[in-house]
């Protein structure tokens, strides 16, 4: 049962290149929350934008070699940047979202709010 639903991305203000590619993602869940692993090879630390607005988590990765054509013999890597949008479950504590990128692999941790964790209620 998935609580993270992918949604149609909202239009973005970008005049030069409106194309994005959808990065591959793995999503894990445990009692504390969710972990997203997103593949963004070619994106340095400063090229990642993680935004959370209106319940939507937007992940953007900007590659450094996008316009690298000098001396190009053969190219398979896409020139477009990466973008993917997820609808987040309301139980996620958006103030504690944490993201790191290591060798082009973006890891986003989405912890559940304390109030959303299962609790035992005793009847008095």
């Amino acid at each position: 049962m998935s609580q993270i639903v992918e949604t149609k991305p909202a239009p973005v203000a970008r005049t030069t290149n409106a194309n994005f590619i959808v990065p591959a993602v793995n999503i894990h869940q445990n009692g504390d929350g969710y972990t997203l692993e997103v593949e963004m090879p070619g994106v340095p630390k400063g090229g990642v934008e993680v935004t959370f607005e209106d319940g939507k988590l937007t992940l953007v990765g900007r590659r450094t070699n996008a316009g690298d054509r000098e001396g190009l013999v053969h190219r398979e890597s896409p020139e477009a940047d990466y973008r993917r949008v997820f609808d987040l479950d309301p139980s996620i504590d958006s103030s504690r979202i944490d993201a790191t990128i290591e060798q082009g692999l973006l890891t986003v941790r989405l912890p559940k709010a304390e109030s959303a964790k299962p609790r035992r209620i005793t009847v008095g």
Binding site: E37, E39, M40, P41, G42, N65, D68, E70, G71, L72, V73, H74, R75, E76, S77, P78, E102, Q103, G104, L105
Partner: peptide, 23 residues
């Protein structure tokens, strides 16, 4: 199969391979 790019200049041939999350 990771994506592979090839560049060439006067002195070097450069091959780039996109593979995220390895060591």
């Amino acid at each position: 199969a990771p994506a592979l790019d090839i560049y060439e200049d006067a002195d070097h041939v450069t091959v780039k391979l996109e593979a995220a999350g390895l060591k």
